[in-house]
Amino acid sequence: MTGNQLAFLVLAAIGCLSALGVVVFGQNAVRSALFLVLNFFVLGFVYFALGAQLLGITQIMVYAGAIMVLFLFVIMMLQLRQDSSAKEPTDFKRPFAWLFGAALALSVMNYVVMPLSMTAESPVGDEFGRPQAIGNVLFSLYSWPFEVTSVLLLIGIVGSILLAKRRI
């Protein structure tokens, strides 16, 4: 086992455990959100390990730095008004959900992951993940989706203002 593999295993272990933490260990919403922050942070490092610098740092900035802060903000605002630290009740759905989840995971494992496990690395060079390369492609080949995304973000802004304002 090489150093890269070891590093990946550590990152993956933290990532998977924190993902479990979001669902299982997090008794209340704040704990869940914290586990998710950890997960996104580690995921940023996994992206670094894949060589995608720009996306790794964007992951940390957008997810861990902005989206999760928004989540925490909303959770805390809800908790200001309501003391909802009570544990959620368990019901019959729980074991079935895990069962189906495991079945899904195993089937995807069997039919998708295992056949691909021998895939060799593609001959992409050092350019992979460089901001310049991504920028060149993003603003030439993918400029139409880029513009559409900007419109989508605008709609998101307007929509959230509409939802948040009491009186327009």
Partner: peptide, 18 residues
Amino acid sequence: LSWFLIMSLVMFTVGGVG
């Protein structure tokens, strides 16, 4: 490659169950 896929799979499954 499969290691990354397995990590992704675990995260996806856990998220879906959640």
